[in-house]
């Protein structure tokens, strides 16, 4: 308001408009909101509309068929496999990620010699663009030149120590590795799903570590001191002090992880394209195959919309969570 008294009458009106908080705010926010509304809301609406028509490639509108696409998709055995795989993929990789990231964050929060270097190595996968990282894994899991298999079936100790990793695997784990018929990581239905899960976990762990480290850093020093005075150490401190304080931030990481895993297509598409024989199809790759390769836009849209409940649940939880944090 001080500015207005200095300025001339004409300028004053101009200033008044911009000093009005509501008005300025709307002008600043509107472009972003309109853009998002058109480019996210629009296609989302279109997806719902398309899923109820028999639209094929080359035309946007088709005949209205109600929920036929959803029913047809559901009746397809490949869809059932894809649904099951999406669930397995999401749940198992999230469990792996949460446990690994929890352990790592806990170890990395204390200073030790060489910590920055180990942290750098651990965070590397996060910086690598995933379409490129997945290609590296395609090579690592190659059918003939897989370095994993080479390491499993060759004598890896220098000087011929006759130490074979596959013997350890055969002795310790329920799996059996035959040295002259090594595992086909991307060619066997079970292994392929496992490979996809492992690569996705590889990519998400660093991100979860970063979030967890932020959570640990936000615990005030007084809390740690108080825990020390009360004699809480090790596991006890973790369970009663660190874990409850980290829970909110871990929840955020988990909710994100669920959405980004269930809706991810890159890793599966690059590693297996849903194969062998559709055994590693996910909802996303199956929607792509049906909608783009098969040309049934309507049914493809219907398949991908089966992901909507997951998004909806996560969105509701996040909103609740945001409100809770605001209140406290």
């Amino acid at each position: 308001m001080e500015a207005a008294t200095v300025a001339g009458p004409r300028q004053r009106r101009w200033h008044d408009v911009f000093e009005g908080r509501r008005f300025l705010a709307s002008i600043l926010i509107a472009p972003a909101v309109v853009f998002i509304f058109v480019l996210v809301g629009g296609p989302l609406f279109l997806a719902v509309y398309m899923s109820m028509t028999d639209a094929t490639a080359g035309e946007l509108s088709g005949k209205f068929v109600g929920f036929d696409n959803f029913v047809n998709a559901w009746d397809d055995p490949v869809f059932r496999t894809a649904l099951r795989n999406t669930l397995l993929f999401t749940i198992i990789s999230q469990i792996v990620v949460l446990i690994s990231a929890g352990l790592l964050a806990h170890a990395l929060v204390r200073p030790f010699r060489g910590r920055w270097f180990l942290r750098l190595l651990i965070l590397l996968p996060w910086a690598a663009p995933i379409p490129l990282g997945a290609i590296a894994w395609l090579w690592i899991y190659d059918s003939l030149f897989s370095v994993v298999n080479w390491t499993l079936v060759h004598d890896i100790l220098p000087g011929g120590g006759s130490f074979y990793l596959y013997k350890v695997v055969n002795a310790v784990t329920p799996w059996t590795v035959e040295p002259f018929n090594p595992p086909q990581w991307l060619g066997d239905p079970t292994l392929a799903l496992g490979a996809v899960i492992s690569v996705h976990a590889w990519r998400v762990i660093p991100f979860a570590v970063v979030i967890f480290l932020a959570g640990l850093a936000s615990i005030p020093n007084e809390v740690n001191d108080a825990a020390k005075v009360d004699g809480a150490t090790g596991l006890k401190k973790f369970w009663y002090v660190s874990l409850p304080l980290q829970l909110p931030i871990a929840t955020v990481a988990l909710l994100f992880g669920i959405v980004f895993t269930a809706t991810d297509m890159v890793v599966v598409y690059i590693l297996t394209r849903g194969g062998p024989f559709n055994s590693s199809q996910m909802l996303t790759t199956w929607a792509y195959q049906t909608g783009v390769n098969g040309g049934s836009l309507g049914e493809g849209a219907a398949i991908s919309l089966y992901l909507l409940p997951v998004l909806f649940v996560v969105a509701v939880l996040m909103l609740r969570f945001a409100r809770k944090v605001e209140v406290s």
């Binding site: 296609p43 989302l44 279109l46 809706t263 909608g291 909507l308 998004l311």
Partner: peptide
Amino acid sequence: PPTLLFLP
């Protein structure tokens, strides 16, 4: 996600 919007 893009996987929901890419077809439309």
